[in-house]
Design a protein around this nucleic acid. Structure first.
Length: 330
DNA sequence: GCCTTATGCTCAC
DNA sequence: TGAGCCTAAGGCT
């Protein structure tokens, strides 16, 4: 269930564990991973991560594309594989793995802790296999299809590859030309890739930006500031399986490590007091996803809301949800 | 055990 | 714009 930070972390781990090695690539028990035979037995050359997409390069025209969607996840381990589980299961396994005696043989682990500097805490030689469950996509792309995917993705704050998906100017230009709300634009992967619902809400709060502000009304310096902030925030992304976006000075505990419930300023904190001003955090269904914000720190001016409503750019889904009787802001 | 919710995306209409 | 797909955890009865 990842945003871009998690994708890049998996890419780093799978690079360490599998690149340069021949892999057994196994389909799930019901054979929904129909492309497995195309890469089975081949040497993995490189693992790419752009936005929320992973690309396992097995040859110049052979990429295994993985998108985890909202539910996909990996489990890693050494020794024997666990029993099949789930509708779509794919396994990358080192050829010949599981034959050697290991101290942790047969113990799968789902390690998700990163060190503070973003490095990974366990030696990759302990990983024989990884199991993928519940992805939105797990299929083989040729080079043209992979390139087409890259072409439609916006810059990724965590991408530093030659040829670059890390030039934010394209994103600035697009945002500043649109009437759509910044809350929706930040989630648009063709504008910025790798940002998901948590980082959207948290970045907007951190920069005190009203989610309903039309893109064209956002100041360029604010966009630059958001981009600059997003890089360390995404890099620091995972701490004990949690995304932490609060600064120490704003945490009620004042502790260096966020306690449970103080990882986020606004995300899933609706009905609770803002850490900064005490105002009650609101939520609203926007374009099918739940948006959270502080109505005081992220001032909702009547003018901005009126504009958003009039243009029908940001609150359509919210109004539709209200019609259906679903809960909106508390 | 059932229901709701969740870090996403595509496609048909 | 709504439906559909996929898994898991937590709250409730």
């Amino acid at each position: 269930m990842p945003e871009g930070n998690e994708i890049h972390r998996w890419a780093a781990r799978h690079t360490a564990a599998f690149v340069g090695k021949k892999l057994n690539v196994l389909p799930g028990p019901n054979h929904r991973f129909i492309d497995a035979h195309l890469v089975d037995g081949k040497k993995l050359l490189k693992v790419h991560a752009v936005g929320k997409h992973l690309g396992y390069e097995f040859g110049p025209d052979l990429y295994l594309h993985v998108h985890l969607g909202r539910f996909g996840d990996f489990t890693e381990g050494c020794g024997p594989l666990p029993e099949p589980k789930g509708a779509l299961r794919a396994v990358l396994q080192r050829a010949g793995a599981g034959k050697k005696s290991r101290s942790q043989k047969g113990q799968p682990h789902n390690l998700t802790c990163a060190n503070d500097d973003g490095t990974q805490p366990f030696p990759p030689e302990e990983v024989d296999w990884c199991e993928l469950r519940g992805p939105t996509d797990c299929s083989v792309y040729d080079a043209a299809k992979w390139q087409a995917l890259l072409d439609r993705l916006g810059p990724d704050p965590l991408a530093h590859e030659p040829g670059g998906h890390d030039d934010p100017q394209r994103a600035y230009d697009k945002i500043l030309s649109k009437k759509t709300s910044i809350g929706e634009l930040l989630m648009d992967q063709s504008i910025l890739s790798g940002i998901g619902n948590i980082y959207r809400a948290e970045l907007l709060f951190r920069h005190r930006l009203n989610p309903f502000t039309p893109g064209e009304q956002v100041e360029l310096k604010t966009l630059k500031s958001i981009w600059k902030d997003s890089i360390p925030l995404l890099k620091a992304g995972m701490v004990d399986r949690r995304i932490v976006c609060t600064d120490r000075k704003d945490r009620p505990s004042g502790k260096a490590v966020a306690e449970r419930g103080e990882e986020h300023y606004v995300y899933r904190r609706h009905g609770k007091p803002c850490f900064v001003c005490g105002e009650t955090i609101l939520r609203k269904d926007v374009a099918g996803r739940t948006l959270y914000w502080c109505p005081n720190d992220q001032q909702t001016t009547n003018e901005q809301n009126d504009t958003a409503y009039a243009q029908g750019t940001s609150l359509r889904a919210g109004r539709a949800a209200e019609k259906k009787g679903r809960r909106s802001a508390p």
